[in-house]
Design a binder for these strands. Structure first.
Length: 772
DNA sequence: CGCAGGCAATTTTTT
DNA sequence: ATTGCCTGCG
């Protein structure tokens, strides 16, 4: 069935019929305009909650239904797999046809598709691998070592970061100016970049940046290829345009030069990825970049109350160089944004916990409540608190499934079966599990590979026949290579799921973790099982590996009846009835480092982040800050974020705890939380354990006394007699870990572990005003 | 080759 | 405080 035929099952008329108008019937005037402006470049400035996704999907369906193009002639680009998936679902529902094979996907997935179609034109094999950060880093380290560059002075991360920024700007090694490189890596940065690219080419591999960069090179050097795509894509749709980097912009501009029908949707006020190369300038310059462009502003907000929009709008108005939008809503004014000052981070977590419980008691679903924080580390305090009070919660983010050690190892085996020349994979598993092939053996193999001009795997087959390695190592290598030969055979004969199972068993990898008695081993084995079962959803090994490289997603259970805790970045594109915005302290948010490194630009991006946070809220936004926060072990005093002051007074209700900043007597954040088990909140989810936590948990399992937390004033502790006994392990927020020597009435004596605080205290709790 | 102990680094995150 | 990384020794 072609795109121009009527759909027999739905009776949808043929393309070109006025029926396409039906699609826009439910939209407001500007949304409809955004959908129907189909000749020439269009920029849709879509404020938060103005129906951006709806416009984008309707536009795609409209173009199809109006018969302006067939699906193969539309390029629809998103940033995340999630956005791509959502768009596929919605367009599929609207057009009632499968969305298979469409050019709808992320920048990287679409670029990879184009590259695979034309790989040989730029010296790659169509089955090139896409490497992850881990591999990138190891590769760069090797290059630094080869150049004898001091890794202390120029860490591989730093150099790699620079390389990535160049790639974001669409610069190949010869296009980087010496001035740009500066004295990075002792002035050898450009040379390193060049070598890095050469090495990747030899490995038949790309990193994420290359997917776009190679496309640009391809377009530049193979005019016929570019022309073909330019002809093919009659319409181009782009989501989240404010987050594009220069390479992505160039890619789009080249592709759009054919039909000039490019529609970019975005919001300059929601650009929060400058630190990874996004250029707000792209959206600000749209009208110059695409002459004759129309601009449509979506300003009617369907999400938030008047107070929330007022607060967010007032805050963002402190940024300069905006395209400018004023959101309005027909929803009621609602409640003012609450701003709550608290004594410390624990008090803040306690406050949020109590508020959530109150909302829950009023019948508010937990799935409509979110706690948004600036840094990933801040989720821990809330997790701890929510667990303690038995509040169901979900942490978004953290270590992602495919980034876990055991998953990467397992994937390396599979990659190596798929493409034997994948040196990075080879290196990773050569001695994992330990089989007596360490650094020495690897060096020998490297030399052999270099001498022969082949990959490590091929060189290894030769070396196994010679005297170059000690007999023991030679035998071990021989055994490994035999296994690989067998597995490769098996890959032809059996399905990829049983292949993976066999590989993990025969390689001794599963056994390695079964033998491992550390507490995190069971979690790792679970993850391996999960990996095997995930593979079942793919037809073949190749497809699975491509998915893994491009879609680094955790298979998470969403939709559960839980409070969500996540970073502000992770919250983009989501909405909740109630949003808690925690940690609004100067230095933390706006983040000091962001300001130090990027000055006013950095500050403005932080402000946009605050704006994004506020506009996630449909009915309630509650901002909080703490006067004291423990960071990296020590206590920091803090003042409220400047963003608190920037919220327009008429939309805000201040409710700082009494006693903060000398405004009264008494101290907030009292309460008593003693007797809490340090590790209980993680006991049920071993897969989330860090090695340190796992060790501590194990110590506890072995009978060591549990650690108790002490918080609150001397009085409150004294009012809870019997909570502490001789020999209890305690943790005090200022003095750290200790042991109770004596506990009678309100006199507690504690020996603290740290030498400088090893003193006997009559009253162990520091009143809040004395805390640093 | 493997392990214990010393040592810096510790924003945000997708693909 | 915690973590991963590096080094030096057995």
């Amino acid at each position: 069935m072609t795109d121009t035929e009527p759909n027999p099952s739905t009776g949808v008329p043929a393309a070109g019929a006025p029926d396409a108008d039906v699609l826009t019937a439910d939209l407001n005037a500007t949304q409809s305009e955004a959908v129907r402006t189909v000749d020439g470049p269009v920029l849709v400035l879509a404020g938060a909650g103005t129906g951006k996704t709806r416009v984008l999907t309707t536009r795609l369906a409209y173009i199809l239904r109006a018969g302006l193009a067939m699906h193969g002639q539309i390029l629809a680009v998103t940033f995340t797999n999630k956005a791509a998936r959502e768009m596929k679902e919605r367009v599929g529902a609207m057009t009632r046809r499968p969305v298979e094979g469409w050019w709808l996907g992320t920048f990287h997935a679409l670029a990879a598709r184009m590259l695979r179609q034309n790989a040989e034109r730029i010296g790659l094999n169509p089955n090139f691998t896409i490497i992850d950060t881990d591999d990138q880093l190891r590769l760069m380290k090797q290059l630094l070592q080869a150049q004898s560059i001091d890794e202390k002075k120029w860490p591989a991360r730093t150099v790699l970061h620079a390389v990535q920024r160049w790639k974001d700007r669409g610069l190949t090694p010869d296009q980087v100016s010496a001035e740009d490189a500066g004295d990075l890596a002792g002035g050898k940065a450009i040379e390193l970049y060049k070598q890095y690219q050469q090495r990747l080419l030899t490995l038949n591999a790309c990193d994420f940046g290359d997917l776009l960069l190679h496309c640009l090179t391809l377009f530049r050097e193979a005019g016929d290829v570019l022309e073909k795509y330019q002809q093919q894509f009659k319409y181009i749709l782009v989501d989240e345009y404010q987050d594009t980097n220069v390479a992505q912009y160039l890619w789009l501009r080249l592709l759009a030069q054919g039909h000039k029908n490019i529609c970019c949707v975005g919001d300059d006020d929601q650009s929060i990825y400058g630190w990874r190369g996004a250029e707000v300038g792209n959206i600000l310059r749209f009208e110059q970049d695409f002459p004759g462009a129309s601009v449509v502003r979506l300003e009617k907000n369907y999400r938030s109350t008047g107070h929330i929009l007022g607060a967010a709008g007032g805050l963002i108005s402190h940024n300069e160089g905006r395209l400018g939008k004023t959101l309005w809503t027909e929803i009621d004014q609602g409640e003012a944004v609450r701003v709550r000052g608290l004594w410390d981070g624990d008090a803040e977590a306690r406050f949020v916990g109590e508020e959530v419980e109150a909302l829950q008691a009023d019948g508010h679903p937990l799935s409509e409540i979110a706690v948004l924080v600036r840094t990933g580390a801040m989720t821990r305090g809330f997790e701890d608190r929510f667990f303690t009070i038995g509040l169901p919660y979900r942490i978004v983010g953290g270590a992602r499934f495919f980034e876990r050690l055991e998953i990467r190892d397992a994937l390396a085996y599979l990659r190596l079966i798929q493409s034997p020349d994948d040196d990075l994979a080879f290196e990773r598993i050569l001695n994992t599990p330990k089989r007596g092939l360490g650094d020495k053996a690897l060096q020998t193999l490297y030399q052999a590979a270099r001498a022969r001009g082949t990959s490590l795997m091929r060189a290894a087959f030769d070396v196994a026949q010679t005297e170059e390695l000690r007999p023991q190592a030679r035998r071990a290598l021989g055994t490994l290579l035999e296994k690989f030969a067998r597995w490769r055979q098996l890959a032809q004969e059996s399905d990829h799921v049983s292949l993976a199972q066999t590989v993990l068993d025969e390689s001794g990898y599963t056994e390695m973790w079964q033998r491992d008695k550390s507490a995190e081993a069971p979690g790792r084995l679970d993850n391996l099982k999960e990996l095997i079962s995930a593979m079942g959803e793919f037809d073949a090994l190749g497809g699975f590996l491509e998915h893994v490289s491009l879609v680094m997603e955790t298979f998470a259970d969403d939709a559960a009846e839980k409070v969500t805790v996540m970073t502000l970045h992770a919250a983009k594109g989501l909405e909740f009835d109630t949003v808690f915005l925690a940690g609004w302290e100067e230095g933390l948010f706006p983040n000091q480092r962001a300001m130090d490194e990027n000055g006013v630009k950095g500050l403005e991006e932080e402000r946009r982040l605050a704006y994004v946070g506020l506009t996630r809220a449909k009915r309630r936004a509650i901002v909080s800050f703490a006067a004291n926060r423990r960071m990296f072990g020590s206590w920091n005093a803090a003042i409220p974020s400047r963003f608190v002051d920037e919220l327009p007074k008429e939309h805000v209700k201040m409710e700082s705890d009494p006693g903060l900043y000398g405004t009264g007597t008494g101290f907030g954040g009292g309460g008593f939380g003693g007797g809490r088990d340090t590790f209980s909140s993680f006991a049920e989810q071993p897969s989330r354990w860090t090695p340190g936590m796992a060790r501590a948990y194990q110590r506890r399992q072995e009978g060591e006394a549990p650690t108790k937390f002490i918080e609150g004033t001397a009085e409150t502790v004294a009012s809870a007699p019997g909570k502490f006994g001789r020999g209890d392990r305690v943790f005090h927020r200022k003095f750290g870990y200790g042991t109770v020597r004596q506990a009678e009435g309100e006199r507690l004596t504690i020996d603290f572990d740290k030498a400088d605080t090893k003193k006997v205290m009559a009253s162990f709790v520091v009143p809040p005003e004395q805390a640093d």
